[in-house]
Design a protein around this nucleic acid. Structure first.
Length: 773
DNA sequence: CCAAGGCCGGTTTTT
DNA sequence: CCGGCCTTGG
């Protein structure tokens, strides 16, 4: 087989190095992956289907570039969409190159790289280098102010939709003065005006929003040739992950950078483009060849992840889409399970069934070895679907975690604390100041807040400066003036403490929370969750400890909203299909395949066929997450807006190729259409259902009982004996308690000392030998 | 100024 | 069923 060798170094010494390294990571690659790695110069598009080793190729490419001295680590621009992806890539590169790789400063998300560039040249766009990055909450607060200043009815023109609009404009790299005519008059005819005001206000607050992190670097590079050349010199090689998700702005920025060495390598999969709604342009990947002259395309089509049945089902589904570049995924993984399809009576039954199925999978069922809970994922279309499952799993005692759920940094107490830190670090950060001005209660209500905000606007200054002004000019009642003066003095002190190198930032942070009365506020509150909030604050300080200083930490959290939580116990992952992209699991459940829910009615209404195709890609992403076992389910009834609705199966179900599907026997009650359920009034339905009196439920519950019985029988022989490889000292695994060492064995009971818990007497059947895990 | 209670409206996906 | 927003009463 011929491989593109054009770019291999030629002198002997380098070739010697090359051949040595080659064995290290190139040998793990297939022909096409190698081509993606070794086609070093010029624009390259790698079309990589799901599970085809995209990340492997990408990281090998970076390692290859460094190893063969095409570029130093700091001359490679590597862009990903999530911090997780960036993190993983760094780890893998380090593994390829040995432990000695120094960090790659330009490997990160679009937004973090944008922020880095912008901090270096903030003055050029009239910002200070320590600008704050607003989160959605702050942004909304600011927009609300503007909307009310403009006397716009917020009921009809909500801040949220304005935020969406501005986001949309920034995704397209439209600055206020260059809005297309069609956009100018959106939002009650005042779109452009408010956009301008908003940017003006951001500048005064020394803040940027997410969109600015891409937009400003573009403006910088477009308006300053010298600067652009400087970056051309730095970025000798550019790599982009998930290219199908880039929006116009991101594309423009990449293009500006790529004009230098023209070494841009984009990796993506048009079939996994699922972010059209937030500005991603599939067009970018579809027109790569046109956009970058003399480009080359490499296709990765060998799938290493899924069984042929899973792959077959996914391929048949996605083939219903018309706008595709087209790929044929194949695998040489041998036959596995077919994709299962099951219908349920309603959402609760679906959750009940999946709960049971997961329990069975934990022991080994359907001829498969037992799975650990962290090998199992539940992927839903919309987050409201999660709750039913959570409730069910709690009842069953199944450990789970919600990915992308309520996030640590979004909790009230954490955001409050951070607002204190932000206002301490930057006196321009009026939004942070506004947030905590009356938290804890200091007697500032709507009235005084309004006075301050008006002052800020009149004088074109930030809220803290406005506060100072109000004190000096007696704009507030004396009581508030004293209070405010006190607070400002505190902030001054905290500020110098944070910048005092002899003081530890974590201690200053604790001091800020204590002296401001914030900790006390929670201590004196007796609601059940106030203790938890104090715990969270401690966690926050702990997280803070991992950073050099407060600025570093604030930068981190504005870009990363996630935090590592305990992962000692394997947990079922519950997440949206969107959040699942890039991940893989041995077992995947895909519930809720009903028309209107999935595909989502809203997507179809808004964007018609385009929307439907994106939904289909989402389904394709879902199925292709699965390695060994994939279950698709749909319910005949679902409660939406607290109303029971008859639902029809998702049109995607009929697009699955039959030979890859096995239909599981369900306890469904389609018959119910004729047994009086259909046209009874809503109340009766709910009543019936809650009381579990319906014929459908009775029928079902008897089946469940039978099923439980037979399950236990199946387990009987399993329970009776102790596996051969269980000995004193063996390391074993338990789904709930994690790993432990066997201390004693008596008949079928085993005493285990768990690493993360005490010792326990446990039936051997609940344990798995570590070798079998 | 604040806390509590009632009412309405909205629920896709997020760096 | 939840949260945001408004009204009401202290």
């Amino acid at each position: 087989m011929e491989i593109n060798n054009n770019n291999k170094p030629n002198n002997l010494a380098e070739r010697a190095i090359f051949s040595r390294r080659e064995s290290k990571f190139l040998s793990e690659l297939n022909i096409m992956q190698r081509e993606a790695v070794e086609t070093v110069d010029g624009p390259l598009l790698v079309l990589a289907g799901a599970g085809t080793g995209k990340t492997r190729a990408l990281t090998a490419r970076i390692a290859y570039l460094i190893e063969n001295k095409y570029a130093k680590p700091n001359q490679i621009l590597g862009v990903t969409f999530t911090n997780k992806a960036a993190q993983e890539m760094k780890l893998r590169i380090a593994k390829y190159l040995g432990e000695t790789v120094e960090g790659m400063p330009w490997l990160g998300t679009f937004h973090s790289i944008g922020a880095k560039i912008l901090r270096r040249h903030a003055e050029l766009v009239k910002l200070k280098p320590n600008f704050t990055i607003l989160d959605t909450d702050d942004q909304l607060r600011l927009l609300k102010q503007l909307i009310s200043f403009e006397k716009i009815d917020e009921k009809r023109w909500p801040a949220r939709s304005l935020a969406g609009l501005i986001d949309h404009w920034k995704n397209n790299a439209w600055i206020p003065d260059k809005l297309p005519p069609t956009e100018v008059n959106k939002f009650d005819g005042k779109g452009q005006k408010i956009y301008k005001l908003y940017q003006e206000r951001l500048r005064i607050l020394n803040s940027v929003d997410f969109g600015d992190l891409i937009l400003f670097p573009i403006l910088l590079m477009q308006s300053n040739n010298e600067l652009l050349e400087k970056y051309h010199n730095i970025f000798r090689y550019i790599l982009v992950d998930e290219y199908q998700d880039t929006n116009v702005s991101q594309y423009l920025l990449l293009r500006l950078f790529a004009e230098g060495h023209k070494n841009i390598c984009c990796v993506g999969d048009d079939d996994q483009s699922i972010y059209g709604w937030r500005g991603a342009e599939v067009k970018n990947i579809l027109s790569f060849e046109k956009d970058f002259a003399n480009s080359k395309i490499v296709r990765l089509e060998q799938n290493y992840r899924s069984t042929p049945h899973i792959l077959g089902a996914a391929s048949s589904l996605i083939s219903a889409n018309s706008s595709r570049l087209g790929k044929k995924l194949w695998t040489n993984i041998s036959e596995g399970e077919k994709v299962r399809l099951i219908n349920h009576w309603d959402g609760n039954d679906e959750a009940r069934w999946i709960g049971e199925e997961i329990e069975s999978l934990g022991f080994g069922t359907r001829g498969m070895k037992p799975f650990l809970y962290n090998q199992i994922a539940l992927l839903v279309r919309a987050s409201f679907q999660m709750r039913t499952f959570e409730e069910r799993f709690i009842q069953l005692g199944l450990p789970y975690r919600v990915i992308g759920g309520p996030r640590f940094y979004e909790r009230k107490e954490i955001r409050d604390a951070i607002a204190y830190f932000r206002a301490s670090i930057s006196f321009d950060d009026g939004l942070a100041f506004e947030r905590i001005l009356n938290t804890p209660k200091r007697g500032f209500g709507d009235k005084s807040m309004q006075i301050l905000n008006e002052l800020a606007r009149e004088q074109n200054i930030g809220l803290m400066s406005a506060a100072k002004f109000a004190i000096d000019n007696g704009k507030l009642p004396s009581k508030l003036t004293i209070e405010l003066d006190n607070l400002l003095k505190n902030f001054k002190r905290w500020n110098s403490d944070f910048f005092d190198k002899s003081k530890k930032h974590t201690e200053v942070a604790e001091m800020v929370l204590d002296e401001s009365g914030y900790t006390e506020m929670w201590q004196s509150e007796k609601t059940p969750d106030s203790a938890g909030r104090l715990e969270n604050l401690k966690e926050l300080i702990k997280a803070l400890d991992e950073f050099e200083n407060m600025q570093g930490f604030l930068e981190h959290i504005s870009l990363i909203m996630e935090m590592e939580t305990d992962k000692d116990i394997p947990k079922i992952s519950i997440m949206t299909l969107h959040a699942a992209k890039g991940l893989e699991f041995p077992v995947v459940f895909l519930p809720g395949w009903e028309d209107g829910l999935f595909p989502s009615q809203r997507s179809m209404d808004q964007k018609g066929k385009i929307g439907l195709e994106e939904e289909r890609r989402l389904a394709h992403v879902g199925i292709t997450r699965a390695e060994k076992y994939c279950v698709i389910s749909f319910a005949s009834n679902r409660r939406i807006f607290n109303q029971w609705q008859n639902t029809i199966p998702s049109r995607f179900i009929n697009e699955l190729s039959e030979e890859n599907i096995e239909i599981l026997e369900s306890q469904n009650a389609f018959q119910s259409y004729s047994d009086g359920w259909n046209r009874t009034n809503e109340k009766d339905q709910i009543l019936n259902h809650n009381n579990y009196n319906s014929p459908g439920w009775k029928r079902m519950s008897s089946k469940i009982q039978k099923k439980n019985f037979s399950l236990n029988k199946e387990f009987a022989p399993f329970i009776a004996s102790i596996p051969e490889n269980f000995n004193k000292g063996s390391r074993v695994f338990h789904q709930k308690f994690g790993y432990g060492i066997i201390e004693e064995i008596n008949s079928d009971n085993v005493k285990v000392i768990f690493e993360k818990s005490d010792s326990k007497d446990i039936k051997a059947s609940f344990l798995i030998h570590e070798d079998d895990v």
